[in-house]
Simulated assay, not measured.
Amino acid sequence: MILVFGRSGQVARELAALAPDARFLGRAEADLSDPAACAAQIMALRPAVVINTAAYTAVDKAEEEEARATVVNGEAPGAMARACAELGIPFLHISTDYVFDGQGDQPRGADDPVAPLNAYGRSKRAGEVAVAESGAGYAVLRTSWVFSAHGNNFVKTMLRLSETRDQLTVVGDQIGGPTPARAIAAALLSLAGQMQVGRPSRGIYHFAGQPATSWAEFAREIFHQAGRATEVSDIPASDYPTPAVRPLNSRLDCADLETDFGIKAPNWTQGLAEVLKDLKHG
């Protein structure tokens, strides 16, 4: 059995579609603000592999709630991973490009130095460290700019705004990889399957949409594919201040994942077409 922490998030919902026989624990069954309870669920259910998709994801709110974010994003994954180590089963966990400082213009490798700019990034880095120190066989999948037909995300926000606006200003100097949640779910299932039969089982990997683009260009492609006439004007991130500082460079080098597991980084424009089709027919 695959045990998944998370039920309503973007990746969890895509996992449910791809792996309907998996066991999913929502907040009612496993609240990550209680790490010991999460570990107890693993010990009680004794799955073959655990995938954690649940997280504290309110990036700006985390500036005021860093302690809470660190429990959910740091301590809980560590407790889960230690339970997996005790059972001798793989643990898979999702992290973020926000562990980096956003300097430069080159893709960051998994082994590059980290220096989070905000509380959310610090909390996710705490989770990476806790998982790595747990003794479990693990894979941490850093990803970025997740989108799908579910929940709240940039694609759905742009489509909603375009219904009443013919012009939008969007940040043009933050560069990264929009990543389809469905592709993340598929990558996690591939990792889980390979790790159960002895493939490399300890490491941090990157998985983000290619090619790298800006939020403004992402918005233009959304409107192009959706047939919306809304025009986009680029603005610098400094013109759109937020409580949490975002990295300007969120490019991720995904080569290691393909080398070790044969999992290629997704093309985000193709993933966008699938999401728009889902939204149209949903």
Rank of each mutant, 00 (worst) to 15 (best):
F223D: 05
A54K: 00
R142L: 04
A244V: 05
G127R: 01
S214G: 11
P113W: 03
T269Q: 14
A192K: 12
G6D: 06
G127Q: 05
A186I: 00
Q10Y: 06
Q106W: 09
A55S: 14
L248C: 12
D101K: 10
G88C: 11
A69F: 06
Q194R: 11
G203M: 07
D34Q: 12
L45V: 11
D234L: 05
A48K: 15
V155L: 10
G137E: 11
A237E: 10
R251Y: 08
A212E: 06
A54P: 02
G88S: 10
L141K: 00
A132W: 06
G198H: 13
N152S: 11
Q41A: 14
S134D: 05
V72G: 02
F100G: 03
K277V: 01
L252C: 00
V170K: 07
E14I: 00
P180W: 03
D173M: 10
V50N: 00
G227A: 10
L272W: 03
A229C: 10
L15Y: 00
F154E: 04
R199A: 15
D256G: 04
V197W: 09
F100N: 07
R251P: 09
A181P: 01
S144A: 15
L272C: 04
R202S: 13
K277L: 06
H224G: 06
T164F: 06
L18E: 13
A185H: 09
N249T: 04
L15P: 00
R108M: 14
R23F: 11
P35M: 12
Q196P: 11
A183N: 15
P236D: 06
V99F: 14
Q174W: 02
D97T: 01
A85P: 10
E217I: 11
L252T: 00
G121Y: 00
L159W: 11
M195Y: 07
G282D: 10
A119Q: 09
S144V: 12
W268E: 14
G127L: 04
S148W: 05
L161Q: 13
C84Y: 04
A126R: 08
